[in-house]
C-alpha cells in the first residue's frame, strides 16, 4: 500500500524489541495493525477487508 500511494508510510515493527510501542498501542497479539494511531486491525485479513479497514474515514 505504501509503495503504491505517495501518502502512505508502512512500518513493520518487531513487537518484542519495542515494548514501549507495544504497550502504547496495547499489542497483546500479533499481527496487529495501527493506522494513524486511531484505527486498530487485529489479525491478518484478506486484502480487500484489510484495505477497507485501514482506509476507513476515521483514520484520515
Amino acid at each position: 500500500m505504501a509503495f503504491s500511494s505517495p501518502h502512505i508510510t508502512a512500518t513493520a515493527v518487531e513487537a518484542t524489541s519495542f515494548m514501549d510501542l507495544s504497550r502504547k498501542y496495547h499489542v497483546t497479539g500479533v499481527p496487529k495493525t495501527i493506522v494513524n494511531d486511531n484505527i486498530e486491525i487485529l489479525g491478518a485479513l484478506p486484502e480487500q477487508q484489510f484495505v477497507e479497514a485501514a482506509l476507513q474515514p476515521a483514520g484520515q
Partner: peptide, 25 residues
C-alpha cells in the same frame, strides 16, 4: 505491487498522510 484493482482504486482516494504500523513477532 500485485494489488487487486479495488485496492488500487481505494489507494487513489488517499490524499492525507497515512501512517500504518504492523506489529509482529
Amino acid at each position: 505491487a500485485e494489488l487487486e484493482p479495488a485496492t488500487v482504486k481505494m489507494l487513489e482516494g488517499v490524499t492525507s498522510p497515512t501512517e500504518i504500523k504492523v506489529f509482529s513477532t
